[in-house]
Design a protein around this nucleic acid. Structure first.
Lengths: 357, 357
DNA sequence: CGCGCCGTTGACAACGTTGTCCAGGCTCTA
DNA sequence: TAGAGCCTGGACAACGTTGTCAACGGCGCG
């Protein structure tokens, strides 16, 4: 009974819940490897971690035992002992949103360069779920958090940050705490986009965006207003829709501002989802209406006309945030900062259509 | 220097590796909470885990102490004790690929329903990196793995599977081990797509796909060949390009098969990235060429003409795989199985163009 | 030849939690 | 009022790893 004894000789272990589900009992541990190799526990640890001070011969014996048993170090125990987990958490709004794909990928890339794994979850734009997720990640003792916030009060993170969890907010600022933030220049981008329409002769310009409680949406609205004011154009309430991205809602809003006696001649859309819906509405229209959208779209250049957009660099947002996070962990970083990345106006046709009215 | 103090006030800090980075030494533990509340350690544990057998009064005292200290349970220790981590790993090819967004989202959704977190990483289509990632996840003792394989030999997972790590492969089958697999009907989908072109009168049909070492690519190629053979059309080598998704390469391939004395009159593209590039090539062409692509695209219906595609349901793939994984963990599941999900032909115009030659 | 040093190795405690088990005080019943 | 049983609470070991420290043997040097 060489290794079957391994489990049999445990004392009174009446209802071993933890064993159920594991067909072959538990995994081998360093102790098992040590026994098999005829060495001490610590020697196995040294071999596994590539620490110096082990004879080539001993090392070989240990390696063989590891191989034979299929041993794999238990990182949970390691973390418990060492304090660092070499993993970071990413809380975002929706993994399936094409805007967040490149962003998470960039975060992952940086994490990988620092030897860390990425744990992520979607908040679905729900503040409670954001908090639940962020705290669950803290309970796992991630070394740091990258958060695309859904809520606007992050005081719940204060104990965590004090305890040393590096924290960076992306895309939207933190609420009621002082923390690193990486943003796009939402205000400036929107202002430039709207100014572009004005420069092409438009005065009656609609704005369809997300709910202003979302920071990016509010900033873009502010940019719209600023551009209009700079041009001395009074904005009419009927030109603005701020009710979220639900396609049906957006469709109605667009149709309304495009009908009536005095329709808008151009539309500025506040994010990619709104843009997609509005493109559909405009495609069904007989007269040409100018369009500039915030966020780029994959096939925007192939549509007729191509869609002019204010593009933000999602990958750069993620990369910048993650790099900042690791600088916090290095101790290289001092005060929290707010970093704003520029946007880029990409002219493709739809934004250069003159007023038709 | 208000915030520089943030790091400065660390006490005698000789070489306590694990403490560095944490401003207040370590976090409070249950022991600290117990001391502050004037109760035993286990009582705190009971409160934290909502176990019965604690007086409301005691519970309140403990809760206050938890609040005051900002205590958060250390899940690493918990995992060490309990054996299950309530987290699953997802190894995919590229988080930024729009195909994998909905897939990971679906996996996450199912994980969440089972109270588990998702850890994920991209293999970048590199078998070594896939293995490295999968094993790192196993070292963290994830309860299960969902893998979109890059390599074709997964024997390295055998010890892990024996040790009880639930494993499901998605999108592509496992290599050299017997495991659960969830796939799209790549062969049938491609065959139907090509048959659709044939039904519209085409005989000279090009195929541009990814490298055949990738299972999905090989299957789609097989579908193309089958449809052609069913129709009694001999396939010419010049009609096929199997060299990967690099845009420049795809562009050249498309241009070649569309020029010459006997050009193809229709193209079947093997995945979304190829499709996008080919759309660009066709848009620059004067004569109409039919196109059917594998994988749907976000704005496919708005292009002129709309792009006919063989759509697969990425979310369903992810959901099915994750559900199967949790059934493995329940112990409900017995033998590994291969599940194939149907694809759907979406007619939008480009696939219904008749031959122009 | 003896001393000290170095390189190798292992024993042991600790990380923070949970499962087991027992103690003490209470209520309930005969 | 005594005994049985229940409820609450705490002491202790264990999970698998790593840091500390000490022991051991061999070697060089005085």
């Amino acid at each position: 009974m060489p290794e079957t004894a391994r489990r049999a000789d445990r004392p009174g272990d009446r209802r071993p819940d933890r064993r159920s589900g594991n067909r072959y009992g538990n995994r081998p541990t360093m102790k098992d490897v040590a026994a098999r190799a005829g060495v001490g526990l610590k020697t196995v640890s040294r071999v596994v971690n590539g620490e110096p001070g082990v004879t080539p011969d001993t090392e070989r014996r240990v390696q063989e035992a590891i191989e034979a048993l299929g041993f794999r170090r238990n990182d949970s125990a390691r973390v418990l002992r060492k304090g660092r987990t070499a993993s970071i958490g990413l809380v975002l709004e929706d993994l399936a949103d094409p805007f967040y794909g490149p962003l998470s990928r960039a975060v992952e890339e940086v994490a990988r360069a620092h030897g860390a794994l990425l744990i992520n979850g979607s908040s679905a734009e729900d503040p409670d779920r954001e908090q639940e997720l962020a705290l669950a990640l803290c309970a796992r003792r991630v070394d740091g958090l990258v958060i695309i916030p859904a809520g606007d009060d992050h005081r719940y993170l204060e104990p965590e940050i004090r305890a040393g969890v590096a924290t960076v907010f992306v895309d939207r600022p933190a609420g009621r705490i002082d923390a690193d933030v990486v943003l796009s220049d939402n205000f400036g981008g929107a202002r430039d986009g709207v100014a572009h329409l004005i420069a092409h002769g438009h005065r009656r310009i609609g704005f369809i965006g997300d709910m202003p409680r979302i920071h990016t949406a509010a900033e873009r609205l502010r940019g719209y207003r600023a551009a209009m004011e700079d041009a001395g154009i009074p904005v009419e309430d009927a030109w603005m829709s701020l009710g979220g991205t639900d396609p049906e809602r957006v469709r109605r809003a667009a149709e309304e501002m495009l009908s009536g006696p005095d329709p808008v001649t151009a539309v500025f859309t506040g994010n990619n989802r709104v843009t997609v819906t509005v493109i559909r509405v405009l495609a069904a229209l007989s007269r040409p209406v100018a369009l500039v959208g915030f966020d780029d779209l994959e096939l925007a250049d192939l549509l007729q006309p191509g869609v002019t957009v204010v593009a933000q660099d999602a990958a750069a947002l993620g990369r910048t945030a993650a790099e900042r996070l690791f600088r916090q962990l290095d101790g290289t970083l001092l005060a929290p900062e707010r970093i704003e990345l520029p946007t880029r106006l990409v002219q493709r046709g739809s934004g250069e259509i003159p007023p038709s009215g």
